[in-house]
Write a protein that binds this DNA or RNA. Sequence first.
RNA 1: UGGGGCGUGGUGCAAUGGUAGCACAGCGGCCUUUGGAGCCGUUUAUCUUGGUUCGAAUCCAGGCGCCCCUGCCA
Length: 559
Amino acid sequence: MTENTAPKSFIHEIVENDLASGKYGGRVHTRFPPEPNGYLHIGHAKSVCLNFGLAQQYGGKTNLRFDDTNPTKEEQEYIDAIKEDVRWLGFEWDAELYASDYFDQLYDWAVVLINKGLAYVDDLSPDEIREYRGSLTQPGKNSPWRERSAAENLDLFERMKAGEFDEGSRVLRAKIDMASPIINLRDPVLYRILKASHPRTGDKWCIYPTYDWAHGQSDSIEGITHSICTLEFVNHRPLYEWCLKSLDIYAPQQIEFARLDLSHTVMSKRKLLRLVNEGHVSGWDDPRMPTLSGLRRRGVRPEALRAFAETIGVAKTNSTIDYALFEHTLRADLEPIAPRAMAVLRPLKVVIENLAADQTEWFEVDYYRHDETKEETRRVPLTREIYIEQDDFMAEPLPKYFRLAPGQEVRLMHACLITCTGFETDADGNVTEVRCTYDPATLGGAAPDGRKVKGTIHWVSASAGAQAAVRLYSPLLRTENDDPDAPDTDDFIAGLNPDSFETLTAVVEPALLQAAAGARFQFVRNGYFYADPVESKPGQPVFNRIVGLKDSWAKQQPK
RNA sequence: UGGGGCGUGGUGCAAUGGUAGCACAGCGGCCUUUGGAGCCGUUUAUCUUGGUUCGAAUCCAGGCGCCCCUGCCA
C-alpha cells in the first residue's frame, strides 16, 4: 500500500542511517502510544501510518501501547475504540501493551533513583511547587524538602504508595536542577497521589507515574528503537534521556515530527469531546467528525487515509493541510472503484410528452463505464414522467448554460435526447414541472445524424424510481482555521458551519434500492456516496455523501 | 540575549554545494454520453542582511517572523 515513489522523510533517513550503522543491531521497533482518553482522529492516523509504516518498510515491529498513567481521564471504552480504529486503518500490532504493565518496574526504578540521591519526596503544595519553579526568565529555587535523606525519602515514598497521604500533599520529584533553562528539568514530578481506580490495575495503586517517568522507560523495556512523537515533546527529550541515563538502561531515541493540522475542522480532543457532549454532532462517529470512527461512518476507506498520510508527508514544520487536499485524496481513492449510478438529489418533474403513459424504455447501463475491465450492468427504465435536478433546468438560462431550458436540447444520460417545450410554475413563480419531447432516433443516447448536444444530465424515472434518504456533510468549521490551542470559548462554537449537515429525500434509480449496507457509489455528477451501515435496511438504503465532485460550472458563477 | 523547534509558490512536501521540482488549489485550453470523467498547458517560492565559494535553499554570522516550554495532563 505504501508508494515507494513517495519522498522519504527525515525520519526514514534516520532509520536508514541507523540500519546502515548497525546502531540497534539492524532492528526497527516502533510503537504507537495513544492515551485512552478519547477517540482517534485523522491526526492520529498520520502517526499510526508513520509508526506502523516504518516497521513494514524496514522489516521491523510496532507495539500498540496505551499510555494509561492517568486513571482520572482514561476509560476502557476508549481502549476498545482505539484498537478497532487501528485495525480498521489496516494495521496489526506485534504486541498490545500498557504503560500500566510496568507500574511495578517503574516503582522499583523510582526507588533506585532515590537511593542514588536523584529523587526526593516533596511536601510542597501544588501552588508552592509552581511558585518555586520560577518562570521562563527567572530560575526556580530549591524546595526545602530537597535534601532529605535517602532513608527518609524511601520511607515517605513507601507510605505514599500505601495510601497514607492525601492527594496533592506530596509528590516524588527528580532532583535535577531548579535553575535549568529547560523548565522540564527543574525537578519534574515523577509520581503523584491519585486515589482513583485504574481501568486495568483497579485499586492496586494510589500513586501513578507521570508521562515523563513512564514513557521513556516503557520504550526501553520494549526495546523500542525509534520513539516517534510530536513536536511539543521536543522540550521533554532532555528529561527522557536523563531518566534512561540515570537508570543506566537501554535507551531508544526520541524523534519528533509536526502533528497534522487540517483546515476547516477541529482537531483537539477537548473540543471534539465538547462537540459530542453538547450535542453539536450526533456522537464520536458523526460523519462530520475528523475521528476515524466518523470518517468510517461517512464512508471514507482506510486506503484513502493511508494515501493521505503518504501525500502530506512528515516534517518538522508546523503546517495546516488544506481541506481540499483531503477531499482530493478521497475522490482519487473512490474514482477507480466506485460503480456509477443515477440519483436525483433535488427532484424536478419532467414530462416527456411523446412517450406514452404506459410505455417504458429499458436501457442496459454499465456500472463501470470508466473501467473497461469491469462489465457489470443494471437495467434502467425510462418512463413518461422522470425527475431531474432542479439545477438542471433554468426558465431563463444564463449565457453558456448547457442544460435544460425552453427550446434547448440535452441528453438524458444513457437514454436519449430531449428538447424542452415548456414548463409550469406555481403561484410564486417556482417551476413545478418541465415539459419535453424526446427524439426516438436517439434511444441509447447517441444522435444518428451526428448532431452535438452540449449538456448531458442524469435523471430517474418517477414511477420506477424510489425515494431514499441522502445526507450531505460539509466541513464542521465555517472558517479555515481553528487554533488547536485556543480556549474552547463560545467563539469556537459560533464558528461552526450551520450547514454542515443536510438531509434530503432523493429519488434514486431502482437498482440502488438493492444497495447493500456499506456499498459505495458515485452518484453521477453529484459525488461519492455510502450506504450507511447502521441505518440502511434491506431495500431501503440511507446514503451518506462521502465527498462531492468538483463543479466547474458552479465555480464560474459569480456568487 | 531564558531554553528549544521551524522558516521554499496560495497550501503542503522535495531538492542534502551544481538547471529549484511534485501534489493540491488557481488560471487557460482540449475533449466529453459525468460542465462535475479524462487529458494538456500554465502563473506564483528559497524570511532578511552580510560572508565563504567558480557556484548557496543547502555552509557561517547577525537580524526578523512563527511555534513550543512556567500541569501533581499526555
